[in-house]
Amino acid sequence: MIRLQHLTKSFGAKQVLNGLCLEVPDGRNTVVIGGSGSGKSVTLKLIAGLLEPDAGQVEVDGEVVQTMDRSELAALRGRIGYVFQFAALFDSMTVAQNIGLGLVKQGYDEATIARRVEESLAVVELSGTEDRYPAELSGGMRKRVGIARAIALKPRYILYDEPTTGLDPITSAVMDDLMRRTRDLGVTGLVVTHDMRSAFSVGDRIAMLHCGAIRQVGTVEEIQATDDPVVRQFIEGRPGAALPMPAGGSPE
């Protein structure tokens, strides 16, 4: 279980998160929706220990990420897969090297690594691309390699940063399907997105991030039937003043 407790984060004068609390239960996909710049990526980076919160803490399996030393943090990273918005594949490495890099660090032998790379590529339906370079792949393929790199470590959790943004509808559906299949393998997913179609399709639970905190959490049905005007406006995609307001400036 991942528990976000009263997370606060500012960059300079700009407050991004303002006391965010959220629980991510095991074995299900939790989707965090929110407008561009609402702090979705920042939240994921706080969970993975890539950023430090100004206040509050993140608990993963009962351990507090912010107090971990180097080796604990390295172990944590073996348990959390991270799928970046633009895949963040290493340009200078082949697909196979990209996927195997985390396994090399965790100390697996070459045969195991080769087998895991092959398995992961099969899951994302990209078998045979082992020796290609990221520059030779389409955007959708790169994102799938990004997922393969995350699942190769057989993590308990996967954090997805806008997995369908910028993809055509069919490729988006493929990504959604992948995220559901990964969940069915027993992996807990935390997906951040502003793509409502994808959110309803992969989410078991949906939470809305607004003004630096969680506005509402609930099942897909609960969110679809919400009477909170801010959440309604967002899921229906209506323009208006309430939506992309920075933290602290909510017109209620």
């Binding site: 990273r77 594949l89 985390g102």
Partner: peptide, 18 residues
């Protein structure tokens, strides 16, 4: 710099590299 802005540096850290 390119690795940083394309999040490759973050990716490296999530794979437990320092």
């Amino acid at each position: 710099g390119t690795m940083k802005v394309t999040e490759q540096v973050d990716a490296l850290e999530t794979l437990a590299y320092d």
